[in-house]
Nucleic acid binder design. Structure first.
Lengths: 260, 260
DNA sequence: AGCGTAAAGTAGTCATACAACTATGTAAAG
DNA sequence: CTTTACATAGTTGTATGACTACTTTACGCT
């Protein structure tokens, strides 16, 4: 969270001059404890215990716990003790989402960022994807195909469209996992969030360009085929084409005159 | 923050069945308010006012405010009302920092991610950097050069080394800004945080390989020259070389036998 | 051993009070 | 008239205690 005005790097060293709010310094200590001694899935002591342990009131302790939850380190729910969370991309996703909400221009910047990361992901996956990794991507591809058929048959089936988008995101996340780079997969997981909110826009652009979900499935299948064959260059180029297409879809929906 | 178990996308639509804690739903409303009606730099109403406005106690309102602060949307400090914050990369940086703390393998994943983003940044900057953008990068380069000299003269001058690293980060952020992609510059700003903590490791590897800070300055200068000349391909390749080198430095410090 | 229910544990919320710091306005000094 | 000093009000930080709503545990029954 980088508690705003209280820069931990310049202050924390000398506890005697630590003028930060107690909640902040307790949060820092708790962070070290969680990251250092605990494993994902483990339960923390209760707020009351922690409060006593750190010598603060429960209100203050609660704030510290909430800060860690805000950084995605803990799962907190009513009635049960907090649980150490497995790292994931949701914090990054929320960051991107509010960025785009504050200025929609950021969406196009993000598309460009995503493009180069996806190309790297596909390239690396083609280089050293495992059998299991490819099977996971194939499963996601199958879900995309099924959702595409449902959406076609059901007309404006919003649920099927949502399933399609989810399977699409799963596919790209599977490739990132197959690339062996976990940070990359966290970033994709996070990017899926803001794209989910604009995916109906993308869909509209796709239809305006006379393309169907099945076309998208075929493009994804081609990428996976390249990866499966170890065709590094082909995988990168195919992914590049796919992302160019996705960008055209969104731009088309925003300003139909600007692009093919 | 994606308040953990409480998925805003599946629940928020129907307020009647909103079983989330009050603090969470108030935080969502406040987020919309801040992102929609307020501009960076503006001050929020006091916690007491907000609490009354949303019909909750001050304790609950405080939690909501803290959640927004955690997402990097607000600056909160004792005695003064919260201020809407300009977007920046600190949230992303904290995310990466805790990721690396939980498993140092993530550092190498991050280096690969950074590599493709830096190449994209240099490429785009070469394509359409403004005069002002290039001057900003030149200024950062000058600071790098000065810090490198100080560090050489001062022996193990930790402060000069820190200045060098800061100027280095500024240089790359300046390129991202020159590329015109603001999301990219936020990401670089965030990545600088975890790299700051491992930069002395990188330095050690650099020395082990017989390279000096001046060599690094020269490599950066070459990149900037390419960008300044509009040499898109050259800029990308030069940046690629620089990042390969940086990775070698870190790997060398971790396991001296593994690489040149 | 399995099940249901009572009891204990735990997070969520509230009201209130005071502490610590900041911002503001007012009066004295130059 | 400007500047400084200070008292005052405004605002966030923290503590206490109580109660609610939900989850987990433990006990007793079948």
């Amino acid at each position: 969270m980088q508690q705003n005005l209280y820069d931990k790097f310049t202050v924390t060293h000398s506890p005697l001059t630590d003028t930060r709010p107690a909640a902040v310094s307790v949060a820092d200590q708790l962070t070290s404890y969680v990251l250092g001694k605990l494993q994902p899935g483990m339960r923390l002591p209760s707020e009351a215990d922690l409060a006593e342990r750190y010598g603060v009131s429960r209100v203050t302790m609660r704030e510290a716990v909430k800060m860690l939850a805000g950084r995605g380190l803990l799962d907190v729910a009513r009635g049960r003790r907090a649980i150490v969370r497995q790292p994931d991309g949701s914090v990054f996703g929320d960051f991107l989402t509010s960025l785009i909400k504050s200025d929609s221009k950021h969406l196009f910047d993000l598309i460009q960022v995503r493009r180069s990361l996806e190309i790297q992901s596909a390239t690396m996956a083609a280089r050293h994807a495992s059998r299991a990794g490819i099977m996971a991507a194939e499963a996601a591809l199958a879900r995309m195909r099924a959702a595409a058929q449902d959406a076609r048959r059901g007309g404006e089936d919003a649920a099927a469209q949502m399933r399609f988008h989810q399977a699409d995101a799963d596919f790209h996340e599977a490739l990132a996992l197959a690339s062996g780079n976990r940070v990359l997969s966290y970033l994709f997981e996070g990017m899926a969030l803001p794209f989910r909110e604009s995916f109906h826009v993308s869909l509209r652009g796709q239809q305006m360009r006379g393309l169907s979900l099945e076309d998208s499935v075929a493009a994804h299948a081609h990428i996976l085929a390249c990866i499966s064959n170890g065709d590094v260059k082909g995988a990168g180029e195919a992914m590049s084409k796919l992302l160019d297409d996705a960008e055209r879809n969104i731009r088309m929906a925003y300003s139909p005159a600007s692009l093919s």
